[in-house]
Nucleic acid binder design. Structure first.
Lengths: 111, 111
DNA sequence: TTTATTAATCGTATATTTGCGATATAAAAT
DNA sequence: ATTTTATATCGCAAATATACGATTAATAAA
């Protein structure tokens, strides 16, 4: 963009957008799905399963980690990743709060 | 990207990523918040409230509409937007399903 | 009919994301 | 000590996203 205007929005809005951005790629959805299905640490199997190069997968993992959605530790030549359920719940809760708040009175005749 | 690899993922993964992408900007979060709080059509007030130009807001609205998250109709010189609650629920549900599936057995010693 | 008014679209500049090969790092295995 | 294995990081190219001014379109108001 010419100038990023993101600072012009509230902290909460930026946080939610960051969370969504972390989910905004099928590779990252797929990674999370893998981690969720195992509900445990996965050590290295991710690259084998995805149709992406090792460096690309590593980058996606980094983004998920930066967003706080996964935890990971490196034990020398192998790594260990798992979902940070707490963070996940937090954000899902915030979204639900935002957009379900008034949904009770739903079904307006509209547009 | 050099070559988009998105087709390499499942339909569902792509759909969820698309949904997330639509939410991946604070301006679009703000717009949805406005629409949710009114729980009714908003006619044009959006540009006045946001710190963005009319053309930029229009573009964000278009993206939300393409993603199916909002409905909108144009009545000559004015428009009318509201949240598509059904679509919203659908996607939120899918996310919950994906990532809560195994959460029951949660709290593994991990990483 | 002319003149607002409101919103979509076009063109363009800049920023960010995506992806990969190459390289670096770090422990384990030989 | 050297090699292997697994992963992170760097540097680059290509694709997308973001933002805005200018223009267009379409109705309402005068």
């Amino acid at each position: 963009m010419a100038i990023h205007k993101k600072e012009a929005f509230t902290q909460k809005e930026q946080e939610l957008a960051e969370f969504a951005k972390a989910l905004a790629h099928p590779a990252r959805i797929a990674i999370l799905k893998l981690l969720a299905q195992k509900n445990a640490c996965i050590c290295g199997e991710i690259v084998d399963v995805l149709p992406l190069s090792q460096s690309t997968v590593s980058q996606h993992l980094k983004e998920l980690k930066n967003a706080g959605l996964i935890d990971g530790s490196i034990d020398g030549p192998r790594s260990c990743y798992c979902i940070n359920w707490k963070a996940f719940e937090k954000f899902m809760g915030e979204f639900s709060f935002l957009f379900n708040k008034l949904k009770v009175q739903q079904e307006k005749a509209c547009c």
